[in-house]
Simulated assay, not measured.
Amino acid sequence: MRVLAWSILMLAISSLPAKAQTYDPRVPVCMKVYDGSDDGGGEWIDCSYTSLPQCRASASGRAAMCVINPYFVEAPLPARSQHRRHRHAY
């Protein structure tokens, strides 16, 4: 009975539509643009901004809003040198 329940569950999950990630993880700020045209409209996400002020300047006067990219991955900081000075006892 458990095998049948798991099989049905897995079949149901696999038949759900998948949604692709719409945010570019290389950029910290994205602009959501809303298209209110008569043909159904829609929205898209433009992840090409390095700061909120830059994005807001581009969004000004448009049906758009700027958001912090939830998938942004910061580049790791360079490793600090492990070289230390040692005091010598004389």
Rank of each mutant, 00 (worst) to 15 (best):
M1I: 15
M1F: 15
R2L: 13
R2M: 14
L4Y: 13
L4K: 06
L4Q: 07
S7E: 07
S7G: 12
S7L: 14
I8D: 00
I8G: 01
L11R: 08
I13K: 14
I13L: 10
S14T: 12
S14F: 14
S15R: 13
L16P: 09
L16A: 11
L16Y: 14
L16I: 08
P17Y: 10
K19H: 09
A20N: 08
T22A: 13
Y23G: 00
Y23M: 03
D24M: 00
D24K: 02
P25K: 01
V27G: 02
V27E: 04
P28Q: 02
P28K: 06
V29H: 03
C30H: 02
C30V: 00
M31Y: 04
Y34D: 11
Y34E: 10
D35N: 12
G36I: 13
G36Y: 12
G36Q: 07
S37D: 06
D38Y: 14
D39M: 04
D39A: 06
G41I: 05
G41Q: 06
E43Q: 15
I45C: 08
D46M: 03
D46E: 07
C47L: 01
S48G: 04
S51K: 03
L52A: 04
L52T: 15
P53F: 10
P53G: 00
C55G: 00
C55T: 03
R56L: 11
A57Q: 05
A57W: 10
S60Q: 15
R62N: 08
A64R: 04
M65I: 11
M65P: 08
M65A: 14
C66G: 03
V67H: 07
N69L: 04
N69E: 10
P70N: 02
F72A: 00
E74G: 06
A75V: 09
P76Y: 10
L77E: 11
L77A: 13
L77F: 13
L77G: 12
P78S: 06
A79I: 12
R80N: 06
R80S: 10
Q82D: 11
H83W: 09
H83E: 06
R84H: 04
R85M: 01
R85P: 00
H86G: 01
R87T: 00
H88N: 02
